[in-house]
Amino acid sequence: MAFGPHLLLATLEGLVTSAVLALMALGLSLVFGVMRVVNVAHGEFFMLGAVLAWWIASLVSGHPAIGFLAALAISPLIVGAVAFAADRLVLRRLNYEPEATIVATIGLLYIIQQLALTFYGPQARPVDAPFTYRILFPWFGYSGYKLSIIATSALLLIFTWFVLTRTRIGLVMRATQYDRETAQAFGIPVGRVYAGVFALGAMLAAIAAVLIVPITQAHYLMGLNPLLLSFIVVIIGGLGSLRGTVVAALLIGVSDGVISAFFSPTLAKIIATLAVAMVLVFRPQGLFGSAAK
């Protein structure tokens, strides 16, 4: 394949990766930014979103779009409820201590993964895409649905940005992030904000999963890779920085697509990991993060 079309394909693939990654990493970043919790179970919320999407879509008959839309609406809500409960039952009781929450979320990771294995099974199961339009470039064909993921993700990111910067909820979240005690002194229910943020982070992962599941199928081990990539994105972008997360997701996603297509996916992972190491050495707060207070 000639260089131009090859690059186009690689970029498209990279943008799809970026789109999903940005949503997922944003969830991770929010949870860390506001709660200072490193959520190791984030990948399992992603997996849970995909598995629930399969379950919901399989209950709905008729056009595949109906099942998909139902999954897109309901699956993140259920995942959010699970995360909300996890925060109330586990994280709050640990007083959000950094070390304790890491261990607790590792435990959560295994519990969710094994429950999925027990009740959903070890098979990979597909969810039908809402539409199967195939875009025909002169050199190759490309899934129209994949392109729609990019658009959907961009819309969701703008919406999240709007909520965080232009609404009262966002103000309360930012206040809690900035200074927990002062926020509490001003009457902000910090406990409820924490639970809400944890649920919101999980819901973003679940939405990313529902968007990707018509392409990759739901499987109980699918959470690990996106989790690692999300950590890479969040560290490079700066923990807690919305803008940094999106820029880093674009950077990692597109470079992953291009390097994978021209060289090898393994090399793409090596370079991404190297980038994390470099950022940690030379700019520990991340590209857009502010230095620790």
Binding site: L9, E13, A124, T216, N225, A261
Partner: peptide
């Protein structure tokens, strides 16, 4: 692997037959 499109540009244009054998949870993809 869970995504495969990125490998396909490596298929030479003069290919007459693609001989494929994949395993794993993502074979349908």
């Amino acid at each position: 692997e869970s995504s495969f499109t990125r490998y396909f540009p490596q298929i030479p244009a003069e290919t007459e037959v693609i001989y494929h054998v994949m395993v794993g949870p993502a074979v349908l993809t």
